[in-house]
Design a protein around this nucleic acid. Structure first.
Length: 639
RNA sequence: GCUCACGUAGCUCAGUAGGUAGAGCACUUCCUUGGUAAGGAAGAGGUCACCGGUUCGAUUCCGGUCGUGAGCUCCA
């Protein structure tokens, strides 16, 4: 029979030849050695799969994304086998897929795992690897598989099987361990070269919080030890950059039990940085033809009844308070206030588009388990805006928003995005026609902007379709910040109108959008992105004056005052300490410019500058110094 | 909210097999006046998260509450 590679090369092989044999015959040594499975006629299969006449093969390399996922999936099976061997057959195994950076397997076991168990499990996994057991695929009738797992007492597998519609299912066996699995897998356990268990945590059976809590063991695996080491190093690096740790060390923000969980206290350094962010944001919004609003923190609860938020989100809102026998509510959203401003007078189509923005602080009751540093909080400030426009202006407005959005993100060095377009969910308001038109407008705008996007079917909010943008930080992690949402609900519920060209009243289209999302969260992302070493334009302290001894006190104070007057964010460290010590402390605080003053500098009326990276500049006069720092602290301009 | 773990000085952590606690850094004072990542000495600082129980006695054991962490679930 004749089989071919997707590249076109073909060969004659005896009937019943396997994928492995075909790859051996057709591919150079390197491909042969790194192929763990293959796409055959578009389907991922094991190397041991027999081929049919005319099969077209594309080898899957172990270091490709798909290959890695096969490797990790196999590692999950090996881990499950190790756990079963170690802890006995009464351990129930649930599911064990490959995930983003590794794999996990869920177990139901009386006693809980702890990280102390990891070395033992890893050692047993290593033993299984050394046994080099082949992964053997077997297709059986569903009923047969159910009977087998029942006999083994594996009720989770039985439950999974019962949910499968197909009559035939595939099992994978390595040694004594059999698992229900679609495959493909590595040829044998010996292929697992580098793996590590990472953590253990609870996880609900089938992700349902009403169902049993299982124990999830996370691990990761790589084709070689070097790649594993690099990954573990990256995890360390992420830990080193943890915004909660840096926030405390750099005195940026704090969270106090006394105040309450999920409520952020912005310390002076953090507040300074926030001010820079806010000023920049306002400036850019002014330039992009937005008008700024301020609205209250609370409003009558009825406002939220009208808006519909109460119906959908009452469990996520703080409890109401009584004021003069009227129920008030702390705001979880800014939009109803903007609508109230819209309603202050009659509106004409000639005013459109109306672009209103606000740094609006909102409070939402997040479940305790969801809280996390600055990333998930109960009180936060949205960089919110609402745009009221005509249906025909929708696409252009989306385009404007995208343009401002990317412009702002780029200033922080975020130039890599994942863009999602979320379409109509099952539960929704608004006409099908409106949904379709709005979704088309979003799509068109994204296409015009040249932004590749993925469709997230059914993930839109009940009131309209949306675009979400995730930004990629320097560690390659993605963070959801920007969101652009069309809203058919609020204009309807508040019955807002404008007078059209025809003299009739019409309903405007409303767009909600946030670029940074929440200032708290964005701040957290920035801390991790920059590892606390903020660029000069954002650094809460740009420079610190350090004298060598008391002899330079006067000049040092003079330098401090002059820079302060020039608007440089400056501090002084004139303590009776050694220079080494002062430099070390400034370095740990990641201050960009260290201004060093000794006798030589006093004599020349100049300052020696040490940069954060250890580099020394030539001595500068005070005016030169001010100019240099200002020049180095310009806001980065995005294309 | 759920599962598991954790909560000792401002920070990082040690400790007590039940007899009211200790280090380093930071802080204060003194000595030192020193040129690019920690000079020396002394001092101050803790109701061992909170509430209850067991006990002659609890920071230590048990229960609850609050908070934190990892994950699950959720995120207008």
């Amino acid at each position: 029979m004749r089989v071919a590679l997707t590249t076109g090369e073909a060969i004659e092989l005896p009937l019943g030849a396997t994928v492995a044999e075909a790859i051996k015959a057709l591919c150079p040594g390197k491909v042969r050695k790194t192929s763990v499975a293959a796409q055959v006629d578009g389907r991922a299969v094991d190397l041991s799969t027999p081929l049919a006449e005319g099969a077209v093969i594309e080898p899957i390399a172990i270091d490709s994304q798909e290959g890695l996922s096969i490797l990790r999936h196999s590692a999950a099976h090996i881990m499950a086998q190790a756990v079963r061997e170690l802890f006995g057959a009464e351990v129930q195994v649930a599911i064990g897929p490959a995930v983003e950076d590794g794999f996990y397997y869920d177990f139901d076991k009386q006693e809980s795992f702890s990280s102390d168990d990891f070395p033992v499990i890893e050692a047993r996994m290593q033993a299984i690897v050394e046994r080099d057991l082949p992964f053997v695929r077997q297709e059986v009738a569903k009923s047969e598989a159910i009977a087998m797992f029942k006999a083994h007492g594996q009720r989770y597998k039985v439950e999974l099987l019962e949910a499968i519609e197909a009559e035939t299912v595939s099992l994978y066996r390595q040694g004594e361990f059999v698992d229900l699995c679609r495959g493909p897998h590595l040829p044998s356990t010996g292929w697992l070269k580098a793996f590590s268990l990472i953590k253990v945590a609870g996880a609900y059976w089938r992700g349902d919080e009403k169902k049993a809590m299982l124990q999830r063991l996370y691990g990761t695996a790589f084709p070689d030890a070097k790649a594993l080491k690099a990954h573990l190093h990256a995890l360390e690096e992420a830990k080193r950059r943890d915004h909660r740790k840096l926030g405390r060390e750099l005195e940026l923000f704090a969270i106090s039990d006394q105040v309450g969980p999920g409520l952020i206290l912005w310390q002076p350094k953090g507040a300074q940085l926030r001010k820079i962010l806010e000023d920049y944001w306002k400036e850019e919004h002014y330039r992009h033809d937005y008008e700024l609003l301020y609205t209250p923190q609370i409003a009558r609860r009825d406002l939220w009844r009208t808006s519909g938020h109460l119906d959908f989100y009452v469990d996520d809102m703080f409890s109401p308070m009584e004021v003069d026998e009227v129920s008030y509510q702390i705001k979880p959203m800014n939009c109803p206030f903007h609508i109230a401003i819209y309603q202050t007078r009659k509106r004409s189509y000639r005013e459109f588009p109306i672009r209103w923005c606000e740094l609006g602080t909102v409070y939402r009751y997040e479940r305790t388990g969801a809280l996390h540093g600055l990333m998930r909080v109960r009180g936060f400030t949205q960089d919110d805006a609402h745009i009221f426009c005509l249906p025909g202006q929708l696409e252009e407005e989306i385009l404007n928003i995208l343009e401002l959005n990317l412009h702002i993100l780029k200033a922080f060095g975020f130039a890599d995005y994942k863009v999602y377009l979320s379409t109509r969910p099952e539960k929704y308001v608004g006409s099908d026609q409106n949904w379709q038109r709005a979704t088309e407008a979003l799509k068109l705008a994204l296409t015009k902007k040249g932004l590749p996007f993925e469709i997230d079917p059914g993930e839109g909010v009940f009131y309209g379709p949306k675009i979400d943008i995730k930004i990629r930080d320097v560690l390659g992690r993605f963070w959801q910040c920007s969101t652009i949402q069309v809203d058919f609900n609020l204009p309807e519920r508040f019955a807002i109108t404008y007078t059209g060209e025809d003299g009739e009243e019409h309903q405007p289209i409303m767009i909600h959008r946030a670029l940074m999302g929440s200032l708290e969260r964005f701040f957290g992302v920035l801390i991790e992105h920059y590892a606390g070493a903020f660029p000069n334009w954002l650094a809460p302290v740009q420079a610190r004056v350090m004298n060598i001894s008391d002899a330079q006190l006067d000049f040092s104070k003079d330098v401090y005052l002059q820079l302060k007057k020039a608007g440089i964010r400056i501090e002084k460290d004139l303590r009776n300490e050694k220079l080494n010590y002062k430099i070390r402390q400034a370095q740990l605080l990641k201050i960009p410019f260290m201004l060093i003053i000794g006798d030589k500098e006093v004599e020349e009326r100049k300052v020696t500058v040490r940069l954060r990276d250890g580099q020394n500049l030539q001595a500068l006069s005070i005016p030169e110094l001010i100019e240099m720092i200002k020049l180095e602290s310009r806001i980065p301009v995005a294309d």
